Amino acid sequence: MTSRKVVELFYDVVSPYSWLGFEVICRYRNVWNIDLKFRPAFLGGIMHGAGNKPPGLVPNKFSYMTKDLHRASSYFGVPLHPPADPFEVMFQKGSLSAMRFVTAVQHMEQGGDKLVERVSRELWRRIWSEDKDITKPESFSEAAKKAGLSDSETEKALKLYTTQEIKDKLKRSTEEALNFGAFGFPMLICHIDGKPEMFFGSDRFELMANCLGEKWLGPNPDNSASRL
């Protein structure tokens, strides 16, 4: 068997398209010959660093996004239900604290990925299915418990996410994404023959499969959408 290729997923839970990309690549984790690495980062830092404009600042783009997410939800089998005020959630409240919390959970795992995967999913669910807050400690606590963290693990993450160590770790991840050429999320980096190949968005999996020497079997290769 050929050696497994590393695929890094840079994402932010404030991004609905990141949720789509996250779920699809998770489904392919055991279908393709890859090692998947989660790379939580801060979308606000990416937009600023790349000089990009959020969709909410371009009226036609924002209008298109709301319709596109409805279609994408059905196609990808992800329960997207935009909040009452997507602009407030995405561009006024932001996700810096949430992504620091995700980073803290990943840091606690020491190289694992089960907890960070489940916590990320619960935070996405709060915003994009239930129209709930993701800026307050009590919101992180609720998401962590739903993700299966114990009370002690949740308490540890809540103490850890405000430390300088975690702030610096999230900043480094965001800077690494910018160094790869990121201008938005989700961004997947496929390491192929020693060279990083960047794919932006949740609609590049067929092209990615071709570059990886794998087969694209649609958004639900094992009909896993029903599990969400």
Results as ranks from 00 to 15, higher is better:
residue 188 L to E: 11
residue 149 L to S: 06
residue 18 S to M: 09
residue 134 I to W: 00
residue 142 E to K: 12
residue 84 A to F: 03
residue 146 K to I: 04
residue 161 Y to H: 14
residue 40 P to W: 00
residue 59 P to N: 07
residue 155 E to P: 00
residue 138 E to N: 06
residue 15 S to I: 09
residue 211 C to V: 01
residue 56 G to M: 04
residue 79 P to I: 01
residue 24 V to N: 00
residue 211 C to I: 01
residue 209 A to L: 13
residue 76 F to A: 14
residue 80 L to N: 08
residue 193 D to W: 02
residue 184 G to C: 02
residue 51 G to L: 01
residue 36 L to S: 04
residue 99 M to D: 05
residue 35 D to W: 02
residue 164 Q to W: 10
residue 16 P to R: 06
residue 99 M to W: 07
residue 213 G to E: 06
residue 219 P to V: 04
residue 135 T to C: 11
residue 29 R to I: 12
residue 75 Y to E: 07
residue 196 P to V: 14
residue 70 H to M: 07
residue 180 F to I: 01
residue 170 L to W: 01
residue 102 V to F: 11
residue 151 D to Q: 07
residue 61 K to G: 03
residue 155 E to A: 13
residue 110 Q to N: 13
residue 36 L to N: 09
residue 188 L to W: 02
residue 202 S to D: 15
residue 117 E to S: 13
residue 20 L to D: 11
residue 198 M to D: 00
residue 20 L to W: 01
residue 135 T to W: 03
residue 170 L to C: 02
residue 11 Y to F: 15
residue 44 G to I: 07
residue 36 L to G: 03
residue 218 G to D: 09
residue 199 F to Y: 14
residue 171 K to L: 09
residue 182 A to I: 01
residue 92 Q to V: 15
residue 7 V to N: 10
residue 161 Y to R: 02
residue 69 L to R: 02
residue 225 A to V: 03
residue 37 K to Q: 14
residue 4 R to E: 11
residue 166 I to A: 01
residue 116 V to P: 08
residue 84 A to D: 13
residue 143 A to G: 05
residue 223 N to W: 14
residue 20 L to F: 07
residue 114 K to N: 13
residue 152 S to K: 15
residue 206 E to K: 10
residue 14 V to G: 12
residue 223 N to D: 09
residue 26 C to T: 06
residue 226 S to E: 05
residue 168 D to P: 00
residue 190 C to N: 07
residue 18 S to H: 07
residue 7 V to H: 10
residue 213 G to C: 12
residue 183 F to E: 04
